[in-house]
Write a protein that binds this DNA or RNA. Sequence first.
DNA 1: AGTTAAACCTGGTTGC
DNA 2: TGCAACCAGGTTTAAC
Length: 279
Amino acid sequence: MPEMPEVEVTRTGIDGPLRGACVLAARMGKPLRWPLGVAPESLVGRRIGPVTRRGKYLWLPLDAAPGASASGGGLLLHLGMSGSLALTDGHAPAGPHDHFDLVTSAGTLRLTDPRRFGAVVWSASLAEDPAAKLLAPLGAEPFDPMLTDAGFHAALHRHRAAVKTVLLGGKVVVGAGNIYACEALHAAGIHPMLRSDRLSRPRAARLLAALRATLAQALELGGSTLRDFRDAHGVSGGFQDQAGVYGRAGQDCRRCGGTVRRVVQGQRATYYCAGCQTR
DNA sequence: AGTTAAACCTGGTTGC
DNA sequence: TGCAACCAGGTTTAAC
């Protein structure tokens, strides 16, 4: 579910309120992708630092509790396919899909995730395992100014799979999931089945610009809500209402009037317009 | 080493 | 109406 815009919208929703707050209690529900890696009680008394994002992961720093022997660290969170974080007063009882509560002096941070592909993992720092191991394979941040047209083009040339599959893989650039990979390729006029290493330098530049524009627009609209996603205050995203191709199989392309098609690549649905997306 | 399939889970929608 | 099949925003792991 949550692609980079949804994760970033979530981050901005919790960072301000939680910064400097103190952990009062923690509770785990059903198991998520990986074990927490530490006793939930050991989080109590810690102070929350600035929440940051890397790809679709969030990092919640938790300073050592004053006077405690335990050292600092933090929680690496991932929302998987169906996860969302809500910051509430904590009065609502935990439902069957609420799998993690962090009760703080600024409210309760609750992870709801029906499919449980998400994760909450303790790590001593971002530079140490398990966080380091999880973040190591990730490609460039899409808005990193160090990611240049030339660098993007060169990175695409190291892969022979279809360009859409490579975008989704996150080894070249992170952030785009199934919706935004489809939308960026449509905006750039590039066929999703074109081999990654066959993109010309100008088309690679066009794709990077389209990806950035697509993600920026999604950020402005609060992300996409297909079913589950809500921001930290329970608000749905608005991007899905103006998708160019995603979920529009059989309908007319808004740009060229062609028909939007659905194919499957790497076990994932791909939507594209055969009229204006060329090889 | 890079690419592809299978796996992890649950729930909503579709079709017979 | 009932139930099986299929579909869904992601990523790791195993297997070519």
